[in-house]
């Protein structure tokens, strides 16, 4: 009788534990405060599939390419293959939340510039640019252009 009661209690407790466990896992994924520019950029560059792996470019070049004032961002990571390939990863940490729209606008302008540049030069790169991944998490603004674009969200969510 006692054993039967214990089993019933355990059977009731187990689903509660599972629910709690799932809730705690979910909370980890949505906590943007744990994400950093380095964490995101390192994960993207190491986990995405590229035909030619982009190389890290000096942050000064990123600020010049995106026409971003260096005072607006605290951290920048920038990866490119070269000017003839559209693949690009750029991750910015915006100092002040009020400046996020201007950085997002710079990212949009960059996409527009690349699309225009490649449309009459290498049209095969244009679909990649059109499907560019852009996301803002907290103060971090992300742009990713690559063939393996469907994997980007999963990689960032898993961090």
């Amino acid at each position: 009788m006692m054993v039967k009661k214990m089993k019933k209690t355990i059977c009731l407790l187990i689903p509660i534990f599972i629910i709690l466990l799932l809730c705690s896992c979910g909370e980890k994924n949505t906590d943007s405060s744990l994400l950093t520019v380095d964490l995101i950029s390192d994960a993207l560059i190491s986990k995405l599939n590229f035909e030619i792996t982009p190389e890290e470019i000096d942050s000064a070049v990123a600020l010049s390419d995106y026409a971003i004032d260096e005072l607006l961002v605290s951290e920048v990571r920038y990866f490119r293959v070269g000017s003839a390939v559209a693949d690009e990863i750029a991750v910015f940490n915006v100092k002040n939340a009020d400046d996020i729209p201007s950085i997002e606008n710079a990212v949009s302008e960059r996409i527009k510039y690349l699309k225009e540049g490649f449309s009459d030069y290498k049209p095969s790169e244009v679909p990649k640019i059109e499907n560019a991944y852009t996301k803002t998490i907290g103060n971090i603004v992300i742009l990713c252009i690559c063939d393996d674009i469907s994997s980007v969200d999963g990689i960032i969510s898993s961090l």
Partner: peptide
């Protein structure tokens, strides 16, 4: 410029 070797570059693809 992309490789960060020279600063003053006026160039574009195509």
């Amino acid at each position: 410029k992309e490789y960060g070797l020279v600063k003053n570059v006026y160039a574009s693809v195509g």
